[in-house]
């Protein structure tokens, strides 16, 4: 598919970054506010969808390779299982960082408050791992849907092999 008009592309160039940052926000605040790794990852993946629609497949595949999304998936999931294994001295998936101080272990104050970002122990790490995985996975799905759509609309050869 051809790139859309310059108006659309410019708007996309500006707003795509906001989408990505909002997605990262949802992932990082997963343990405090609605959302989390999956939801935030899905928002970040719309960034990929936006780029694909506005700029077309040809330019998109000049910027990124499919392999990077597979790597995202693999790394995210390995991190998640790794967090599980690290807690194994107590139990699998034990929250070994909570209440230990440091970056992830602040104690939680009782009573109404705005939420303490670094209080969750391994939950935040797991959310980020899931976020990374969902970015990779959903982007792969979006890209394959895009390639399939092109295949149907242009009635021609499947684009997957020569675009990569």
């Amino acid at each position: 598919m051809k790139p859309l008009s310059i108006v659309v592309r410019t708007i996309c160039n500006i707003f795509a970054w906001f989408v990505a940052i909002f997605g990262a926000y949802v992932i990082i605040h997963g343990h405090l506010s609605p959302g989390g790794g999956f939801q935030g990852g899905a928002i970040v993946a719309t960034f990929i969808a936006l780029l694909l629609v506005a700029h077309g497949g040809k330019r998109f595949f000049e910027w990124v390779k499919m392999d990077i999304f597979t790597a995202f998936e693999g790394l995210g999931l390995i991190t998640f299982v790794g967090i599980g294994f690290l807690g194994l001295s107590t139990t699998f998936l034990y929250n070994f960082l909570a209440l230990k101080g440091g970056l992830f272990g602040s104690p939680v104050t009782i009573g109404p408050n705005a939420g303490i970002l670094n209080s969750s122990g391994t939950i935040a790490l797991a959310n980020m791992a899931v976020g990374l995985e969902v970015v990779g996975g959903l982007s792969t799905i979006i890209i394959f849907m895009f390639l399939g759509m092109r295949y149907v609309m242009e009635g021609g050869k499947e684009g997957s092999e020569d675009d990569k």
């Binding site: 597979t70 790597a71 998936e73 693999g74 790394l75 999931l77 390995i78 299982v81 790794g82 599980g84 294994f85 194994l88 139990t91 699998f92 998936l93």
Partner: peptide, 21 residues
Amino acid sequence: VHLPALVLSVPLLGAFVALLM
């Protein structure tokens, strides 16, 4: 005592690492 968890998590780890081989 961790065997019920290990028997699940080892193939899970296997699945994810295999993606990066």
